[in-house]
């Protein structure tokens, strides 16, 4: 009799479908094959670009400002007279970047250092997925910069206007390989090739470099960001004492929904890749550090998106 009752109970428990089973009927999470969001908060780390592009039909207005060196730079030493570099401007860059698609961004910028007018393009070749089927994101970055700087050496042999304009061009080609290891930690590697159409000896037209950068989130809005670029080639090799140094930057990034503010310190003088990678002549050791900030503001230009609300 007891056995029968037991059997009966077993039947009963089988008949009732538990709530957890109800949810199990719903199947697997299909969103895991989606791409990872927010490897970095903005299109830049400190000096280097990040893998992030501007979303479709959005405009990113990006302002960078770099003050003078805090301590000893290649041509001056800061004191209280210039408030340790605060009264000086190393470089200012204003950029407009527009997302043609979510993967493809074009942009335009002007920076003070060597009067560079830049056209840039960024394309996401690969996007890391949540399930790590694609383990890394790879973004291509390329630019073309025209320097209108009044440097007589460019005209030393009285070239034609066309030849002179060509001399003033430089190009950057860069792959940005990045991985979001966790919600907090993202790392990026930047193999870079820079070509200047015209350089002054002993410099060479072609320069190769490898950048490395990363972000560590402290809270949802505040992150610590760092980057460093290593230059290959004898001229800029650390310790060769040719007056060149590798740019290193560190700072804090604050994201406030549409705005991203970054405040940082770096030994780089210029703001665009064409210049800061190859033309950094100050070192952290002597106080050739500059206070610098970036402000990024995102505007949504799509009309249909506005109408929906």
């Amino acid at each position: 009799m007891r056995l029968l009752l037991l059997l009966c109970l077993m039947f009963f428990t089988q008949g009732v479908i538990a709530q957890d089973d109800l949810l199990k009927l719903l199947g697997k999470d299909t969103t895991l094959s989606r791409k990872v969001n927010g490897t970095f908060k903005s299109t830049h780390l400190i000096n280097l670009q990040s893998n992030e592009t501007v979303f479709k039909k959005s405009l990113d207005f990006f302002i960078s400002h770099r003050f003078g060196a805090i301590g000893k730079s290649s041509n001056a030493t800061s004191t209280y007279h210039n408030l340790w570099g605060f009264d000086e401007v190393s470089d200012i860059r204003i950029a407009f970047e527009y997302g043609i698609t979510d993967r493809f961004t074009t942009g335009f910028s002007r920076s003070k250092y060597k009067e560079n007018w830049e056209l840039l393009g960024k394309y996401r070749l690969l996007e890391q997925t949540i399930d790590n089927r694609i383990p890394v994101s790879v973004t291509f970055f390329g630019n073309l910069a025209l320097s209108t700087y009044q440097d007589l050496r460019v005209r030393f042999d009285q070239p034609s206007k066309k030849a002179e304009a060509e001399r003033r061009l430089s190009y950057v080609t860069q792959l940005i390989i990045s991985k979001k290891f966790s919600t907090r930690l993202s790392i990026a590697l930047h193999p870079t090739f820079i070509h200047h159409n015209f350089v002054f000896p002993p410099d060479e037209s072609n320069a190769y470099a490898l950048g490395i950068g990363g972000r560590l989130k402290m809270t949802h809005t505040i992150s610590v960001v760092m980057d460093y670029v290593y230059n290959f080639g004898e001229l800029r090799k650390p310790g060769n004492d040719n007056g060149y140094y590798n740019p290193l930057g560190a700072g804090i990034e604050i994201e406030t929904g549409g705005h991203v503010f970054s405040i940082m310190f770096t030994n780089a003088y210029a703001l665009i890749e064409n210049e800061f990678i190859t033309s950094t002549v100050d070192t952290w050791r002597k106080g050739g550090i500059r206070f610098s900030f970036n402000i990024s503001r995102n505007f949504i230009l799509s009309k249909s998106a506005k109408k929906k609300v």
Partner: peptide, 18 residues
């Protein structure tokens, strides 16, 4: 009369991707 709902939060679409 048991009922269960689930929604993957990543599927929510906003007016802006940001």
């Amino acid at each position: 009369e048991e009922i269960a709902f689930t929604v993957p939060l990543r599927t929510f679409k906003f007016k802006s991707s940001l």
